[in-house]
């Protein structure tokens, strides 16, 4: 139940190649996140799996069965859309029951499943409401309810949290993770937010311009990014990249060092610079330091560091955490 295999799939819109030949294996029960900047093809990839778009070439199989040409309804997948896509003219109950009604299930089975789903998602008292009367988070839960009653082979999520405010987003993130633990069903989740990817995924697929840049567990991507793009995309604040003389010292075209792997001191250190911007959050301090020939470096220090704009500071990188890249951007190991 729930393995998906993409082999050599491509997608072109007119003359524009959105997905060059791409292979990907998604195992049963995995929580896979597609992440990448907007326009990287992650949503298109999801829609190809859903069957909402035709692949131009290649094959898609679900549980070993080829579904490349099957319409969405026949693939046994459920999808939660960015806008939730609830049916505004139906009550919450009817929304959740809709896929069951389409599958021509008996009324008693429909009632039972809808009741259960509502219980799991804390929607019981809203069953007779219309989507318009619900808050963003509740709508999101209805959309998830509509997906789970079908007991699909896999869930597809298309940026489901991007319409929620920050606090709610953190909650829903946890809820979706909980749901995954409970159901143990394969989930594919598309987002442009690397924090969502890092916190939720078993496996992250980093995409750029339709190509897979790297596939791996969250910490694997953080610790051993395969190239400069992944190194820069995963992790926040972004990794600092230094070229030229300093990089040559490490036998590389470019070296990368994450803001949290720089130690700051007001007395001595490897590199000297002037504080450009200091953000004091209490728990952390984020600094932008103009380090002369090295360029601007971002630094993250734990706790509060008493420096301000214009101060001279010294930075020392943790030598074991320096990433090295060649001229083509590939990581050197």
């Amino acid at each position: 139940m729930g393995s998906i295999t993409l082999s050599k799939i491509t997608k072109t819109f007119g003359p524009k190649e959105v997905i060059p030949p791409l292979d990907l294996q998604i195992n049963e029960g995995e929580f896979v996140v597609f992440v990448g900047p907007s326009g990287c093809g992650k949503s298109t990839l999801l829609r190809l799996i859903a069957g909402l778009e035709d692949v131009t070439s290649g094959q898609i199989s679900i549980n070993g069965e080829e579904v490349t040409l099957a319409p969405p309804a026949k693939r046994g997948l459920a999808m939660v859309f960015q806008s939730y896509a609830l049916y505004p003219h139906m009550s919450v109950k009817k929304n959740i029951a809709f896929p069951l009604k389409m599958a021509k299930k008996s009324q008693s089975e429909i009632d039972e499943k809808v009741t259960n789903a509502a219980k799991v998602l804390n929607l019981t008292e809203y069953l007779d409401h219309r989507p318009g009367q619900l808050s963003g988070g509740q709508r999101q839960r209805v959309a998830i309810g509509r997906a789970i009653v079908r007991e699909p082979a896999a869930f597809l999520f298309d940026e489901p949290l991007s319409n929620l405010d920050a606090a709610l987003r953190v909650n829903m993130r946890a809820e979706i993770s909980d749901l995954h633990r409970q159901l143990e069903t394969t989930m594919i989740y598309v987002t442009h937010d690397q924090v969502e990817a890092m916190t939720m995924a078993d496996k992250i697929v980093v995409l750029q311009a339709g190509r897979i840049e790297q596939v791996g567990a969250p910490l694997e991507l953080y610790e051993t990014p395969r190239n400069k793009f992944v190194a820069g995309f995963i992790g926040s604040p972004r990794m600092n990249f230094i070229e030229g003389h300093e990089a040559a010292k490490h036998d590389a075209h470019t070296i990368g060092i994450r803001p949290e792997h720089l130690t700051i001191s007001t007395e001595s250190g490897a590199w000297q610079g002037k504080v450009g911007l200091a953000e004091h959050l209490g728990s952390d301090t984020f600094l932008r330091v103009d380090a002369g020939p090295l360029g601007e470096l971002t630094v993250r220090a734990i706790g509060d560091v008493k420096v301000k704009y214009g101060d001279t500071v010294f930075l020392s990188p943790d030598p074991s955490k320096i990433h090295r890249f060649d001229a083509g951007g590939l990581a050197l190991r």
Binding site: G51, E53, D54, L69, P71
Partner: peptide, 8 residues
């Protein structure tokens, strides 16, 4: 939104 099926 465009599959061969829906186009037909």
């Amino acid at each position: 939104m465009a599959t061969a099926h829906s186009k037909t």
